[in-house]
Amino acid sequence: MSRSFRAELVKLVRRPATWLLLAITLVLAVTFTYVFPYASIAGGTSGPNTDRTLPMLLPDRLVGNSLGGLPVFLGSIVLILGVLTVGGEYGWGTWKTVLSQGPSRLEVYAGKLLALAAAALAVVLAVFVVGAVSSVLIALAEGQSVHWPAAGDLLTGLGAGWLIATMWAMLGAVLAVALRSVALPVGLGLVWMLAVQNLLAAIAAPLLDWVAQAQKGLPGPNAGSLAAALGAPGDTPGVAATVGGGQAALVVAAYLVAFAVVGGVLLRRRDIG
């Protein structure tokens, strides 16, 4: 499996789309977490995010600010990475090329999932780093002192961020295996994350109690709950304390494993076209 992991890492790192997605992730994270809120505060303008005060943008809030995008927007980008990593093999017809070299399907798939997990960690680390730089710049610009979160909180935040990001990457992977393509899994994944989840939370759950209860078992609300438990701003889309942080972490981990296993079973059973 280590051979497959190394091969997958090379493919992931050398693929231009990977870097494009990372760049988009970081631009979105900085723009919506720091630039727009700071522009609002600095300009004294009012808007729907008026509860974002200067202290919320300073380094000691790094963990929550870095996790806020992962339940929906940044998570969507990681989902696309998961689809591209697995679905690309269908799109280019390269499954046969790889498998003809001898590795089993599950070895290759496991290598892909490990590479995605590593990529998810890199993305989360990058989001924390650009968040740290942004918050320090704001603190310096506003003459505020710089206080960092405790090391334990930082590690917990990184772990939670990795868990959420990896879960979305695994969802992308299983969609790619199930639909054996790239475009449709990306489309369906984004519709789920950007539209269906929000519609359920904003419209269906307040109207129907069973939808509200079902929300507690869905991946998005649990990712949002985990981020909320670690200080993500409550006005961020997808962030809400639907369940407790501990339960949310367990549910997210369970989805991560379930997506990985279902993808592996499907890939093993089906013919490679």
Binding site: K11, R14, R15, P16, G88, W92, G93, T94, K96, T97, S100, G102
Partner: peptide
């Protein structure tokens, strides 16, 4: 065992 099946397929960016 080496094989080439139904035309070549590789990663276009490499």
């Amino acid at each position: 065992v080496g094989a080439l099946i139904e035309g070549p397929a590789f990663y276009p960016y490499l």
